[in-house]
């Protein structure tokens, strides 16, 4: 059963990854991913992340259930922040534990792909001059990445 958190505050990636394996002797691999707020060209003041409370947690949990059905996982943690996030700050965390690295790498990648395309979060850019640039558009590249997993399941 995956641990899913949607929160305004930052998180401690080391502690979260460590907690997955703490006290266990059956885990051989923990793969973790941290997504950061990135500034392209020095003009971004912040991102504003809006989410759909309730559905965001449920959708991430559904993605985690799909990953658990697909690979022999021994634990997973997903954290996604919302609210105002400035460049250099962490936005998202995915960590997956398994007996072997193959399942952990694959499940972590699938979870991130699903998170980007299915979890109800929306980003808006705030520029350094105070201008609100508007909502960031979804990328076809992300849809293609996510589609890999459903195609492979058929």
């Amino acid at each position: 059963m995956a641990k899913v958190r949607v929160q305004r505050e930052d998180f401690d990636p080391g502690a979260e990854a460590g907690a997955l394996a703490h006290g266990r002797t059956d885990i051989g691999a923990v793969v973790s991913f941290i997504g950061y707020c990135r500034d392209e060209g020095g003009s971004l003041a912040a991102l504003e992340l809006e989410h759909y409370p309730g559905m965001a947690e449920e959708e991430v949990a559904r993605a985690a259930s799909e990953a658990e059905a697909r690979w022999p996982l021994l634990g997973a943690t997903v954290i996604h922040r919302y609210g105002r996030i400035t460049p250099g700050e962490r936005i998202v965390f995915v960590a997956v534990a398994a007996a072997h690295r193959g399942a952990a790498f694959a499940a972590a990648e699938m979870l991130m792909d699903y998170l980007k395309t299915r979890a109800p979060f929306w980003k808006r850019a705030i520029r350094s001059d105070g201008a609100v640039e508007g909502w960031i558009e979804s990328k076809q590249e992300d849809d293609r990445s996510a589609a890999r997993w459903s195609a492979a399941a058929d």
Binding site: Y52, G54, M55, I91, K116, T117, F121, W135, E137, S138
Partner: peptide
Amino acid sequence: DRVHARSDASITGVKEVAFFPPMTGG
């Protein structure tokens, strides 16, 4: 009711409907 739905999905008995742009989280 907090599950993605297509435009041909039935709304009979639904308590909560939501509309939004394609997701851009992660």
